[in-house]
Design a protein around this nucleic acid. Sequence first.
DNA 1: AGACTTCGGTCGAGATCATCCAGCATTTCA
DNA 2: TGAAATGCTGGATGATCTCGACCGAAGTCT
Lengths: 152, 152
Amino acid sequence: MLDDLDRSLLEILVRDARTSLKDLASQVGLSSPSVSERLRRLEERGVIRAFTVEIDPLALGYTLQAIVRIKPLPGKLHVVQKLIEEIAEFGECDKVTGDDCFVARLFVRSIGDLDGILDRIADKAETSTAIIKAQPIRRRPPPLGLPSASLS
Amino acid sequence: MLDDLDRSLLEILVRDARTSLKDLASQVGLSSPSVSERLRRLEERGVIRAFTVEIDPLALGYTLQAIVRIKPLPGKLHVVQKLIEEIAEFGECDKVTGDDCFVARLFVRSIGDLDGILDRIADKAETSTAIIKAQPIRRRPPPLGLPSASLS
DNA sequence: AGACTTCGGTCGAGATCATCCAGCATTTCA
DNA sequence: TGAAATGCTGGATGATCTCGACCGAAGTCT
């Protein structure tokens, strides 16, 4: 499904999505039209979901991040999910197995904001919040290697 | 610190990091050298942490994701943190307040892999794992608006 | 006030890059 | 075996980026 060249291209683009076709081409040993075509197909197939930019939340004034576990009250699941989606400060949300239904990441500018946002769901769900003190690993893709690399 | 033009540029780039300088320029109403200079400074200041590509984990064979809460045994904190960093399948890890010290995202290709990886830290930490069933919100940046938009 | 400096911007020319197209090698399959 | 499909290359052409020169507004110093 993905060959070595595709993987090399992805690896380079993960590090710098603005690498020119020419550079990509010379790094993987192809011509630029070939690279262009490969990227087009990777996007088309959905392997590449998006070219994007990673912004430092601090630069936008978000000095605090929290992981919030959210357990909607009976019958409130959909309302809560919709609410979460609408609150732009939620930067990520997963629906998981187990007692807490959602695990979400919240960006806030102050403890006050945190309180304000959690208040908005307080009557529809139980929440439990953990403030992020450090980020040992920031978002990174899973290993690009062949399906066998689990025992690194 | 960031003016409206910077914010517009970031907004465009979040959607497509490969937008050409010329397009950026015409969309925000500047010349391309100006845009180029602004991007350079945004990178230099660390506002832009990276231009990157978002890859569908499924395309790499990772059919399963889990959120793992990890509570190192007494004295094992640093060993555990190092271990997590070294295991490439951890796609994200935050150190948080509260009882569980780390909250991490794990990409795996199968339940077997999940078990294998958790085994590697089982003797150094208590873990509790929640399988991700759906992703209501995939990674997105916090609102780019001015510091006041918290009460959306 | 007037002169100087800095900062961020424009413009235009030359260099660089992306894209289009024709053509070629390889593979697949009836 | 031959036809079709695939994926590559190289070169021409048009688009884009970069660099230097210059400009004007705003702040600073005498």
